[in-house]
Each structure stands twice: as structure tokens, then as C-alpha cells.
Amino acid sequence: PIEDLFTSLNRHIERSEFQQAVKVADQVLSIAPGDEDAMRCKVVALIKADNIDDALPTIQSSQKFPIDFNYFKAYCLYRQNNLEEALESLKSQENNPATMLLKSQILYRLGEMDACVDIYQKLQKSKIDSLEINFVAGLISAGRASE
């Protein structure tokens, strides 16, 4: 039954066995196509297995289901240095620490340092670990090291 598959999936996730997690997620999806939890697990496991090249087509193939994968899509595009498209995928997303961090990392790679630094400034009150490392990188690259 599907509950046993999810138990197995959960165990693989806990053990960071991401490739096996993908296989079990696929088993769930063969029984229950479009199952949101299984789809999310598959995409996240592919990303954590550093298999971005398979994560993106999985995301594309999910477009017929009502699941919002735009953050994951933007992240994968960013990892592939497809920066304009990555920004495009973030447009539909509400501002939260995740989307703001990703956007600032994309802007950094695009060389849009002032916009990048602006976001880190806004995120300062969110108490994100190691945020200052990227903030400082943005300031230095913007020629604003004195700040």
C-alpha cells in the first residue's frame, strides 16, 4: 500500500539516501500520478542528489498538476546559470526569506550589486545564518566595501 511506500521514502530521506528516495517517489507516482508529496520529494531528492539536470524535466512534467514548483524551478535554473529565466520563475512568488535570498544570489551573478545588496539589507532583521557573508560579498563587489 501507498503508506508503506511513504514509510520507506521517509526512511531514505532521513538517511540522506536521495537516489533511493527518487526511486520510491517514482513508485508512489506510478500508483498515484500527481501526488503532491511524492512529486515534491522527488524534486527535492534530485536537487539534494545534485542531479539538477533531472530535477528540471521533472518540474516541467509536473506542470499539468496544480503544484507550485516555481521556487524549485528558479533554484535549478540558477544552478544552471540560466539567470534571466530563474528571475522570471521567481516573479510569481511572494517575498519571503527563501525567494529573497535566491533573488539576491541571482542578482549577484548578474552583476546587479546594488539590487543584490538592497535585498540583503531588507533580510537583516530575519536573522539568517551566514547572511553577512553574502552581504559583504555584495558590498565589496558593488565597490562599497567601506560600508
Binding site: 530521506i13 533554484y75 527563501a98 535570498l101 535566491l102 544570489q105 557573508i133 560579498a137 565589496i140
Partner: peptide, 21 residues
């Protein structure tokens, strides 16, 4: 070049499967 961390990666999370098992 200054070091930039991939902080966005920390927000790629598995859903809770608590009520699916």
C-alpha cells in the same frame, strides 16, 4: 572574488510525510 554562499539551498526542503505513513 569574495566568497558567496548558496543560502537559498537551505530552503529546499522535503514535505512532512507524517500523515502519509
Amino acid at each position: 572574488n569574495p566568497i558567496v554562499l548558496d543560502l537559498a539551498y537551505n530552503y529546499i526542503d522535503f514535505p512532512s510525510l507524517e500523515n502519509r505513513m
